[in-house]
Design a binder for these strands. Structure first.
Lengths: 348, 348
DNA sequence: CATCAGATAGAAAGCGCTTGCTGTATTGAA
DNA sequence: TTCAATACAGCAAGCGCTTTCTATCTGATG
């Protein structure tokens, strides 16, 4: 059998209650007793039974972090920052929490199931990262779940996701619309008038907002968008490659390609090169997010930097109750335009 | 109060035992009764209490995945693959498990603490990814922990990590030494004789093995290594940038730079370009891992592809007991040399 | 018609920990 | 010296679920 609290108690010649109090440090215990208990714990190699403890105390030290794609640094960076603030091991005293990163793969069902699983574990907090899925049924179901979580005392924080109405969830939202607009205005400013756009998956807030920003910029400058200029894809490199080929097929006269994110932009660059086009002389390319590798692309990518790590850290602190939520529970996090080598004045 | 099993039982007019059995589906229950119970569950919006269930059943549905750096796609890709096989939501029936990704940041203490935390949660399985820390005390402590875990019925799998002697842990080990050797032999074959090497952090098996492979290749071709040709760093881009500058300072006549991984190689490329050197005309560069962005670098990176996703998936299946461990509990996973644009014949 | 196997359902004993309440020294003040 | 206050320590009642064992009812069997 594994060692239990009672075994430790017996060995230290105290009651289980005392051992529990020594371990939790939430009740006065004489130094000599504590000493004896700690020695017994050590000698027996005792490890607390988490489920039992959680059951009795009606709280757990689990914190859930939901991400759409854990293999994507966009989420990895946020998750890492959140986790570093959650405390985990190495965190500040008293807060040895287990940060659980859950990979939804962008699927609504999985998102919902993971939230239920966390609810089942009585998680202390849940952080949802990245864009939300835009689907009435799913949104309603999620809202209901989040409300339940809050009722049960679980703190809910959205990081890089729009606010969830009718819930008490704190939201740190990225200004995707503003960033998208700024980016496209930069290209327009360079003289571009025929811009292709590679959007992300449909039914995603991130996708929609970035595209809206792009269109707002076109509008503001009186550029009428050709429906052929928008292609939909996924948030990955291959999708960018294929979409770019498609754009080129539809309208070879495009002088710029705006991608939904950096990975897509990289795929776009590859497709352009493979088509014999130079960047930015023949076609300019722009991404979004400014992931670490974007500066290494050749030419380096013009993009919008999102303070992923900062936002994640803040979300983590709020989830831990170590930082005040923003007024109204909502904060907008702005991106910063990074002009680099992949954008230039259009040809001719 | 939250809804409990008893509430559901009362509503369905059955005993708590029956509700439990319906929910677990491990005992015959009349169809009509099941129906009634399920309806009650639904109506009351009942969510199982995980800790209580884990306590009573003495098992939990948590599976731990330890990674060194969650923001690094190297780990993200493995974690994603492992998780997809763990079942998680969407997995095969009966196995709704919560995959927990824990970020150690490469710190021995955090690694140990996370393992203890997982032990505390009575995790069903633990997968340790990436290179191990080479430090006698830490290795011993880890071995002891892993043995305890196994004793407690937790399956332990190492993915991309050397076997842990004296434990029953299954190991899927990357052939870093072989890959490193093959890579350097490729460069030597092109005619390079003065090769710089940017190693990863010391006291890491991955770092050591890759370097050993490199040196073995030099040895095999009678190239005497100059101590100035090796620089130590971290596994990130910036480290590669700085190390390359240092290498160039030490010996400007180098014709090739071999990096510990792709991120480092990208940093090296940037440093070379900033130093006015062309790749590969002036200096060839090689990486390791073949992460998705490596093919997009300009020129695309010559590197060693590691089947991260495949290995992760296999590790996940073994952890779930859905695949037989390899004979002897140890399997070596080989890399594949990817020759691309960043390596060429040396100048002059 | 008595008997028995098979199929269901319930009673109840925990799983290992936390914590409110109670008890007993010990200390300081009067 | 006496009494309240203080500081520790223990008792015991759960926390919400699982599971063994037992009870009941059914239909089949001889």
């Amino acid at each position: 059998m594994t060692v239990t609290l009672a075994d430790v108690a017996a060995r230290a010649q105290v009651s289980p209650a005392t051992v529990s109090r020594v371990l939790n440090g939430n009740y006065p215990v004489a130094a000599s007793t504590r000493e004896r208990v700690l020695r017994a714990v050590d000698e027996l190699d005792y490890v607390l039974n988490g489920p039992a403890s959680a059951l009795a105390a009606a709280t757990s030290d689990l914190v859930g972090i939901l991400v759409n794609d854990i293999a994507d640094p966009f989420f990895g960076i946020m998750a890492s920052a959140i986790q570093s603030e959650i405390g985990g091991p190495g965190g500040r005293a008293g807060g040895e929490r287990l940060a659980v990163v859950c990979n939804t793969g962008g699927s609504p069902e999985r998102e919902l199931t993971y939230v239920t699983l966390l609810q089942r574990q009585r998680a202390a907090a849940v952080v949802l990262t990245g864009g939300a899925i835009e689907n009435a049924a799913h949104t309603a179901a999620m809202s209901a779940k989040l409300r339940k979580l809050e009722e049960a005392g679980t703190r809910v924080v959205l990081c890089g996701r729009p606010p969830a109405p009718d819930t008490g969830a704190v939201a740190l939202t990225f200004d995707n619309r503003g960033g998208g607009r700024e980016l496209t205005e930069h290209l327009i400013g360079l003289g571009h008038r025929r811009l292709g756009y590679i959007a992300g998956p449909e039914e995603r807030t991130t996708t929609r907002h970035r595209l809206e920003g792009h269109r707002a910029a076109l509008d503001a400058h009186g550029i009428k968008e050709d429906p052929r200029w928008t292609v939909w894809g996924r948030y990955d490199r291959q999708s960018g490659y294929e979409a770019t080929l498609e754009l080129l097929r539809r309208d070879p006269s495009l002088t710029a390609v705006v991608a939904a994110n950096d990975s897509v932009a990289l795929g776009a660059c590859a497709a352009l090169r493979d088509s014999g086009l130079r960047i930015p002389e023949d076609v300019s390319v722009a991404g979004f997010d400014d992931l670490p590798f974007s500066v290494d692309a050749m030419p380096s990518l013009t993009t919008v930097r999102l303070p992923l790590a900062e936002a994640g850290a803040r979300a983590g602190r709020i989830a831990m109750g170590r930082e005040e939520p923003p007024p109204g529970g909502i904060a907008t996090v702005r991106g910063e335009l990074m002009v680099r080598g992949s954008s230039g004045v259009p040809r001719d």
